[in-house]
């Protein structure tokens, strides 16, 4: 352990379960991408999701957020069953970012975040055409909230910048701001530090703590072990679509199976994937 680490905060007491995923299974033809994975996330908790490439982490995220319809299992959110439809998921209070940043490239930072407010606002066609006081109030509120969130993630000065022109690290933060704009209870971050230098990574973990401190739960996929063990209250390790270990960072870190999974099986992972099956890890769209 080096000195660059942020001091670990004392583990806070966690509240009610926000997300309860039980037996989530996703099968693409002959490939079992996610097999019977359980995950419970409580209020104010940061959970890490690790595993070698192709372990099904992103697929699991896609199942939770309704981009895929899981072939088995159930997802409950805040006590109620969650339909596997992206819009229902967002409305219920679960937002996400993408592994390979999917911002609206030709919109400004502010506009990107304002799109995130879409599901929490209600002006429809007629209101927009008539432009009564309600419309103007809502529009102003949307703008103010978006600006506030940009400042929260540290992009307060880039409001009018085009997303496609922003540096990589800023794009990641902008994606987080956009997700926060949906007023989530739980935010899912898919490799939020991929491609970042150590300083940016540290800023990212500060930001995640800040998000947690504002009352949200967080689930993070990461490859950077130091980052994840420093950040998370609990860590889940997936291998070949199945839960290998679940526990506190210390427990997972010292588990020999985790080390083996990372060192031992890296090579043959790709070869086992059938040619025509979609990539299990990644955002590749699949039309079932």
């Amino acid at each position: 352990m080096t000195v660059t680490e942020t001091v670990r905060q004392p583990a806070p007491a966690f509240g009610e379960p926000v997300l309860e995923a039980a037996g989530v299974t996703m099968r693409f033809g002959g490939l079992l991408a996610v097999n019977d994975v359980n995950l419970t996330v409580r209020e104010g908790e940061i959970v890490g999701l690790i595993g070698p490439n192709g372990a099904g982490k992103t697929t699991f995220f896609n199942c939770l957020t309704g981009l895929y319809k899981p072939t088995g299992g159930q997802v409950r959110f805040a006590g109620a069953p969650l339909a596997p439809k992206p819009r229902a998921v967002v409305r219920a209070g679960m937002a996400r970012t993408f592994q390979n940043i999917r911002l609206f490239a030709n919109m400004t930072a502010l506009e990107n975040v304002m799109v995130g407010r879409y599901c929490r606002t209600s002006s429809m066609a007629l209101t927009s055409i008539i432009r009564g006081p309600k419309f103007r109030r809502e529009e102003r509120a949307t703008r103010d909230r978006a600006q506030e969130l940009l400042e929260f993630v540290g992009l307060g000065k880039s409001t009018e910048h085009l997303a496609r022109n922003m540096p990589y690290g800023d794009q990641r933060r902008l994606e987080i701001a956009r997700a926060l704009a949906t007023d989530p209870k739980l935010i899912l971050l898919d490799e939020p530090t991929a491609g970042m230098n150590p300083q940016e990574t540290r800023q990212a973990s500060d930001l995640i703590f800040k998000i947690r401190d504002s009352g949200l739960s967080v689930v993070v996929i990461e490859h950077d072990m130091r980052f994840i063990f420093n950040l998370c209250d609990r860590v889940l390790c997936l291998v070949r679509g199945e839960t290998l270990v679940e526990g506190t960072p210390d427990e997972v870190q010292s588990d020999p199976r985790v080390i083996e999974a990372y060192i031992g099986t890296g090579e043959d992972e790709d070869e086992e994937r059938p040619q025509d099956a979609p990539a299990a890890d990644g955002d590749g769209e699949v039309t079932p």
Partner: peptide, 26 residues
């Protein structure tokens, strides 16, 4: 007026990246 409103922003988002727009609740 539609262009400069919540709906207009939604349309742009769809044009830019339909899947991402959906995942953001549009």
């Amino acid at each position: 007026r539609l262009n400069d409103s919540r709906i207009g922003r939604g349309w742009i988002a769809i044009r830019e990246d339909e899947k991402a727009a959906e995942a953001m609740g549009v």
